[in-house]
Design a protein around this nucleic acid. Structure first.
Length: 117
DNA sequence: TTGTTGACTCTGA
DNA sequence: CTCAGAGCCAACA
């Protein structure tokens, strides 16, 4: 038996589990793109987006730190999750441009880089 | 098995 | 900057 909330992502099978694990490594106040995660786990950006949409609410995954390559929050289809996403990011100290865009040069984080920076 | 859909990304105009 | 179109892969009926 194992403690919950620490290894749940790792228990998930294959691709989705890998995606969730990467997302969980994103430091607070930082963001990354679907494409970066996709390249890291070896799939396409669409698949990462699909994994986010299929993300179980029980998992403690900072999904709000995943945005698109334009540096903006991707709009949802039937949900206002994008609104919540912006609020969560602002709460972490992420600055939004007047156009609702995030400076990836400043706040961007890549799965390949050290978590220290 | 095929056809459709989706929290994407790139290229061209 | 915006708008369209094509490519991409996984899940579902």
């Amino acid at each position: 038996m194992r403690l919950p909330s620490e290894n749940i992502q790792s228990q998930l099978p294959g691709l989705f589990g890998s995606i969730y694990t990467v997302v969980r490594r994103i430091p607070p106040g930082r963001v990354t793109t679907y494409g970066s995660i996709a390249r890291h786990v070896g799939c396409t950006a669409r698949t990462v987006g699909f994994a986010m949409a299929a993300l179980p609410s029980e998992l403690d995954v900072p999904w709000q730190r995943v945005i698109n390559s334009q540096g903006k929050v991707s709009p949802r289809r039937n949900d206002d999750g994008d609104i919540i996403q912006r609020q969560l990011l602002k709460a972490e100290g992420v600055f939004f441009d007047p156009q609702g865009r995030i400076d990836l040069v400043r706040y961007g984080w890549d799965p390949g880089m050290a978590e220290s920076g």
